[in-house]
Amino acid sequence: MSLLTNVMDHSLDDGYAEAAARKTAEGSGGLPKTLRAKLGLAAGLVLAALVVTVGAAQARVAAPVVAKERQELIDRIDKETASADTLESTVDKLRDDVNARQRAALRTSGGGEGTELVDLLSGAVAVHGPGVRLVVNDAKEATSGGGDNPRETSDFSDIGRVRDHDMQRVVNGLWAAGAEAVSINGQRLTALSAIRAAGNAILVDNKPLVPPYTVLAVGDGKRLSTTFQNGADGLYLHALEEDYGIRATISVVGDLRLPAAPSVIVRTAQPRSEKGTS
Score class of each variant (00 low, 15 high):
Val136Tyr: 07
Lys207Phe: 01
Ala17His: 13
Asn206Val: 04
Val253Met: 13
Gly245Asp: 04
Gly146Ile: 10
Ser28Trp: 12
Val170Ser: 01
Leu35Trp: 02
Thr90Gln: 15
Leu39Arg: 07
Leu87Ser: 04
Ala142Gly: 00
Asn99Val: 01
Leu258Val: 00
Asn99Gly: 14
Leu134Gln: 06
Val91Phe: 13
Lys23Ile: 00
Val253Pro: 02
Arg107Glu: 05
Asn172Ile: 12
Ala104Asp: 14
Leu73Thr: 10
Ala142Asp: 14
Gly123Val: 02
Ser28Lys: 08
Ala37Tyr: 00
Glu88Leu: 13
Tyr213Leu: 00
Asn149Gln: 03
Leu4Gly: 12
Gly221Arg: 14
Val98Cys: 08
Ser83Thr: 14
Val253Thr: 06
Thr277Asn: 14
Tyr236Ile: 00
His165Val: 12
Val125Trp: 04
Ala63Glu: 09
Leu39His: 01
Leu39Thr: 04
Val91Lys: 07
Ala82Lys: 00
Arg188Asp: 06
Leu41Met: 10
Gly129Asn: 08
Val252Thr: 08
Gln168Phe: 05
Pro271Cys: 03
Ser225Lys: 15
Glu69Asn: 10
Leu39Tyr: 02
Leu256Lys: 10
Thr153Arg: 06
Gly219Gln: 06
Ala17Val: 09
Pro271Glu: 05
Ala56Arg: 08
Val118Gln: 11
Ile202Val: 08
Thr53Cys: 08
Leu120Ile: 07
Val46Tyr: 06
Ala84Trp: 05
Ala49Gln: 08
Ala48Ser: 12
Val132Ile: 00
Gly147Val: 09
Glu241Gly: 15
Glu18Met: 13
Ser193Glu: 03
Gly131Glu: 03
Arg70Met: 01
Thr190Ala: 03
Ala63Phe: 08
Gly160Phe: 05
Asp9Asn: 10
Ser28His: 07
Glu88Met: 14
Phe156Thr: 10
Ser278Glu: 15
Asp13Leu: 09
Ala59Tyr: 09
Leu3Lys: 11
Thr227Leu: 12
Ala260Lys: 05
Trp175Ile: 13
Val182Met: 01
Ser193Lys: 01
Glu241His: 15
Asn230Ala: 08
Val210Ser: 15
Gly27Glu: 03
Thr227Asn: 14
Lys79Pro: 07
Asp13Glu: 06
Asp205His: 07
Arg188Met: 03
Glu113Met: 12
Arg133Glu: 14
Glu113His: 04
Asp155Ala: 15
Leu120Cys: 07
Gly173Ala: 05
Val125His: 13
Glu242Pro: 13
Gly199Ile: 01
Leu47Asp: 09
Lys68Glu: 13
Arg163Asp: 06
Val98Ala: 13
Val54Ser: 07
Pro211His: 00
Arg267Tyr: 11
Gly131Phe: 02
Lys140Ile: 06
Arg101Ser: 02
Arg95Asp: 13
Leu106Met: 05
Gln168Trp: 03
Asn149Cys: 05
Ser193Asp: 03
Asp155Leu: 01
Thr268Pro: 01
Thr115Tyr: 04
Val170His: 00
Ser157Leu: 10
Gly111Gln: 03
Gly186Ala: 00
Gly199Asn: 03
Asp13Thr: 04
Val91Pro: 10
Glu88Trp: 09
Asn99Cys: 06
Leu4Ser: 05
Asp155Gly: 12
Gln58Asn: 13
Gly131Asn: 02
Ala82Cys: 02
Ala48Gln: 04
Gly245Phe: 07
Leu3Pro: 06
Gly146Pro: 11
Ser154Glu: 15
Thr53Ile: 09
Gly219Glu: 03
Leu237Met: 11
Lys79Ala: 15
Leu31Gln: 09
